[in-house]
Amino acid sequence: MDQGERLLHSSSFGTAAAAYAEHRPDYARAAADWALERAPGPRVLDLGAGTGKLTAALVALGADVIAVEPDPAMLAELRRSLPAVRALSGRAEEIPLPDASVDAVLAGNAMHWFDMAVAGPEIARVLAPGGVLAGLWNVVDDHVEWVAGLAQVSGSAAIGPRDTPTGWRAETAGMHLPKTGEAARFGSPEQAGFPHGQRRTADSLVATLATRAGMLVMPERERAAVLDRIRAFLASRPETAHGEFTLPMLTSVLRVRRL
């Protein structure tokens, strides 16, 4: 994805901020624990915080959280749902915090939108020595037969390569920060996955997939056709045709440490 496409996709979520807040899953607690286990202190920046899905998990863990989000509609949802959290307008490429002011920088389903050539040194700047950068992604577990079928039917706009465990590992393996001098030196990246799930109905799963960036930027007629195809698939499967079910997922984590 080139710079223009990344900007278009990353700026699409504000149009669906309320739906994003309602339908997107939270993150496995074990994943957040692992992301933070090497942090030298409790000060955590949730970067690209969206509507606060990861922010809420970090607050529950007892972290001292600051949230930074560029989209005004997403930021408004975050402030509404988590009024006690300090929430600032800002971008990964221009973080509105002082040098060495946080012990960890976490990003929930957001790091792939960052321009790391610029964001890398900025993240290193705000991290204390020994601080941790971690990206968390919720991916569907396509080792489960019906989930693999769903991924195939949905197409890459709804469930892309990064949205399955194998694809996620491949796409994030090189996503550690560039070593561009003393200010942006990070160690070797580590990857881990933690079991997770989300209770859904067919309708709410369709609503969830409709909040994916690829779907939000799709022409309306094409988008409706994809969602209809997903509905038909879910109606055809015994696991998903009647009432609530659990969507099998993993919260996958990429972690690096500032040297």
Score class of each variant (00 low, 15 high):
40 P>D: 11
116 M>C: 12
80 R>Y: 09
49 A>L: 04
99 D>R: 14
232 A>G: 06
5 E>D: 14
192 A>I: 06
164 T>W: 00
199 R>T: 09
109 N>H: 11
87 A>G: 05
51 T>G: 04
182 E>S: 15
229 R>M: 06
41 G>C: 09
244 E>S: 10
157 A>C: 09
252 S>N: 13
200 R>I: 00
247 L>V: 00
145 E>V: 09
158 A>F: 02
207 A>I: 08
38 R>L: 15
85 V>C: 08
168 W>D: 00
207 A>M: 04
66 I>V: 15
194 F>C: 00
92 A>K: 08
91 R>S: 13
144 V>C: 05
138 N>L: 03
113 W>H: 09
159 I>Y: 04
41 G>Q: 10
209 L>H: 04
90 G>A: 04
58 L>Q: 08
241 A>R: 14
158 A>P: 12
215 M>Q: 15
242 H>Y: 12
116 M>W: 14
211 T>F: 01
258 R>A: 13
12 S>V: 02
224 A>W: 08
112 H>M: 02
79 R>F: 11
224 A>M: 15
54 L>M: 03
8 L>R: 15
76 A>F: 03
253 V>L: 11
244 E>T: 04
75 L>V: 03
173 A>W: 06
114 F>W: 07
131 G>H: 11
74 M>S: 05
201 T>Q: 05
116 M>P: 07
234 L>Y: 00
102 V>T: 04
118 V>C: 07
168 W>H: 03
4 G>L: 08
240 T>A: 06
27 Y>V: 05
82 L>T: 01
89 S>W: 10
37 E>A: 14
214 G>Y: 08
193 G>I: 07
61 L>M: 06
153 V>R: 01
92 A>T: 08
101 S>L: 06
164 T>Y: 01
160 G>K: 01
108 G>M: 01
146 W>F: 01
148 A>I: 03
90 G>I: 07
89 S>C: 12
242 H>N: 13
110 A>G: 10
253 V>R: 04
151 A>C: 04
130 G>P: 01
113 W>E: 10
45 L>S: 03
195 P>C: 07
71 D>S: 14
41 G>A: 13
164 T>E: 04
96 P>C: 09
46 D>L: 04
52 G>P: 02
196 H>T: 00
